[in-house]
Amino acid sequence: MNTIVPAIGFGIVTASILAVAGVGFTLQFGVTNILNLAYGDIMTAAAFVAYLVTSAGLSVWLALVAGAAFGSVFSVLLNRCIYTPFVRRGTRLFGMIIVTIAVSLMVQNGLLAIFGASFFSLKMPHPSSVHIAGMVFTTVQLAIIAIAVVAMLLIHLLLRYTKLGKAMRATAADPDLARNCGIATDRVIDLAWAISGALCGLAGVILVMNVTAFTETTGSQFLIPIVAVAVLGGIGQPYGAMLGALVIGITSEVAAAIFNPEYKDVVAFVILVIVLLARPQGILSEVAARKEVAA
């Protein structure tokens, strides 16, 4: 019991990173129908941008902005220059997955060629510890939680209360119908890549703020829990991803405290399987059933 309360606190930190990454990932898939397995590598690339910013002596807050901006621009260009041409040629979901894997390898090797095979750290002030209700956080982790809360709030406001959000939800639900209703779906898709890319970049930076040392494969190693969060929440469902992040983040940390930490991911995935057996479309999905997931 002594270790469970702190573990819940640690789980909230993990969930915060997963939520930012998972919402971006699922939003991207929901609107564009592309399962972008290069997502983790774009996170890494954004982390390297943040590394360059902090290495230049600038603040880590500026590095967060730079990482998000890079993720946004890179994702839009990636879609425009690589993914969209394949989609227009009729490449289906499985083929697109292979294309995204190719992009993943290209980004990883590009980073390796540029930065070399080494480990890097953001230059940040040394964090201090804060005790809250039996849980221990560092100031960096509290910042990560705050960033995640603000990002999720902004996504909520965007999806619920703006025309763009409604257009994105409509495009995600039925792109043909949305187009026939006069929604400029191409523009909506571009903006979806920009917003999800910004979340991707932001997630990459907060991930490496938390792990303290990273290399060209750090983001891709984090991809499996991100996909799990998206699937658990109902793929294409941002709110489901937020909930999925909390479930996966907290259960994996509590499992590590109670059982063998080697199996922390296994416990989280057992829960994922159990939930999906009861609710195959995910916790909150309204969209997944209409997607050609098995295409």
Binding site: I17, T212, E253
Partner: peptide, 29 residues
């Protein structure tokens, strides 16, 4: 992304020394 729960479990066992072999990223975290 985190080893905080593992650290708590280790601290609860009150070791005087830690033997380790992990990769750099894991070691740093």
């Amino acid at each position: 992304s985190s080893y905080r729960s593992e650290v708590e479990s280790i601290l609860a066992a009150h070791p005087q020394v830690i033997f380790t072999e992990v990769d750099p990223q894991t070691g740093a975290t």
